[in-house]
Design a protein around this nucleic acid. Structure first.
Length: 266
DNA sequence: ATTGTGGCCTGCCCGC
DNA sequence: TGCGGGCAGGCCACAA
C-alpha cells in the first residue's frame, strides 16, 4: 500500500462501517491472493455467521477480529493492501487515490470480499495483486508501530544495525508502517542522509529522528496521506530541493528509488 | 545473523 | 494508434 497512513484510514473506515454486521458469504475468486495456507474453502468455512468486532492495525497490517460462537473470540482476518490495495465498504473506499494505483473500479480487481446479511459488502480492491488476505496472522512479525514510536524504541532499532538508515526504517520487523515515500519525506525533513549507516547516528540525531517520525506522520495524516509530503512535488528526475533549491540526488538505497538533498541531508 | 538482490503481478506512462 | 520498456508507495525467499 499504501503506507501506514492509508492503512490507518482503511482501519478507521472498517471500524466506522464494517463492525457488527453479520457475514453471509465470502467472495474469494483469486485463491492466489490468500496467503499462508488460507483457501477459499477455509475462509467460507469460518467467516459466515460471524461479525467483525474490532479493526486493529500494526504498521501496514490490518487485523479484523471476529466474534466467537461462544465466549472465545473467532478467527482474526488479516488484510494487507500491498502496493495498490484499497478497502471498499458498500462502495466507499478509504484513502485518497494513490498515485501509482488506478482508482477505477474494475470488478475483476476485487480480490476478496465478504458480504453482509444487510446486503452490504467489505471488499479488498487491488489491481496489482500484491496485497494479501490471511487468517490469524502472526502479529509479532512486526516491529513497533511507527505512529507512536518512542525515542528509546528508535534508539534500540538504529543503534544495532549498520545497514543504511533508510533500509532500517523500512524494515517492518523493526519499525512497522514506513514505506518508501514516508521515509524519504521524514529523512528530508530531519536532514539525515538515507545512506548513513544507522548506527552512526548520535544521540541528538536519534532524538530528532524519533520526533520527526511522529510529527511527519501526524502532519501528513491530517493532510490526507503518504503522498502529501513537502518533498513529493520535487520527487522526480531533475527535481530541486524545496528547502534550499539544490538539485535532488536520485539513487537506490535499501533497494528502493530514493530522493534526498545533498546539501542539507547528512 | 545481517544485509543485499531479485522476483512476484499488473497497470500506466513515455518514447518510438 | 500501437507497442515495448521501464517504472511503481510492498513483501518474501534466497544468496553472500
Amino acid at each position: 500500500m499504501p503506507e501506514i497512513l492509508e492503512a490507518e484510514e482503511a482501519r478507521a473506515l472498517i471500524e466506522a462501517r464494517g463492525l457488527g454486521r453479520e457475514i453471509t458469504t465470502v467472495d474469494a475468486p483469486d485463491a492466489w491472493y490468500l496467503k499462508r495456507g488460507l483457501t477459499p474453502r477455509a475462509a467460507r468455512a469460518v467467516l459466515p455467521g460471524r461479525s467483525f468486532v474490532a479493526a486493529r492495525r500494526r504498521g501496514k497490517q490490518l487485523f479484523l477480529d471476529t466474534d466467537g460462537v461462544e465466549d472465545s473470540g473467532g478467527p482474526v482476518l488479516g488484510l494487507h493492501l500491498g502496493m495498490s490495495g484499497r478497502v471498499v465498504i458498500d462502495g466507499a473506499a478509504a484513502g485518497d487515490p494513490l498515485r501509482y494505483a488506478s482508482n477505477r473500479d474494475m470488478p475483476e480487481w476485487h480480490r476478496f470480499a465478504v458480504r453482509f446479511v444487510d446486503g452490504g459488502r467489505l471488499s479488498l480492491r487491488d489491481p496489482r495483486r500484491l496485497g494479501a488476505v490471511e487468517l490469524d496472522p502472526d502479529e509479532d512479525r512486526l516491529g513497533v508501530d511507527a505512529i507512536e514510536i518512542t525515542l528509546a524504541q528508535l534508539r534500540s532499532v538504529v543503534a544495532r544495525s549498520r545497514a543504511p538508515l533508510k533500509a532500517v526504517l523500512m524494515d517492518q520487523a523493526r519499525v512497522a508502517g514506513l514505506g518508501n515515500l514516508l521515509v524519504d519525506e521524514i529523512l528530508w525533513r530531519v536532514g539525515l542522509d538515507p545512506a548513513r549507516p544507522a548506527n552512526t547516528l548520535d544521540a541528538g540525531e536519534q532524538a530528532r529522528l524519533a520526533r520527526s517520525i511522529r510529527q511527519t506522520l501526524r502532519t501528513l495524516g491530517k493532510r490526507g496521506g503518504s503522498h502529501t509530503g513537502d518533498l513529493m512535488a520535487a520527487r522526480e528526475p531533475g527535481g530541486m530541493c524545496p528547502k534550499d533549491g539544490a538539485p535532488l540526488l536520485r539513487r537506490t538505497v535499501g533497494g528502493r528509488t530514493t530522493y534526498s538533498c545533498p546539501r542539507h541531508q547528512h
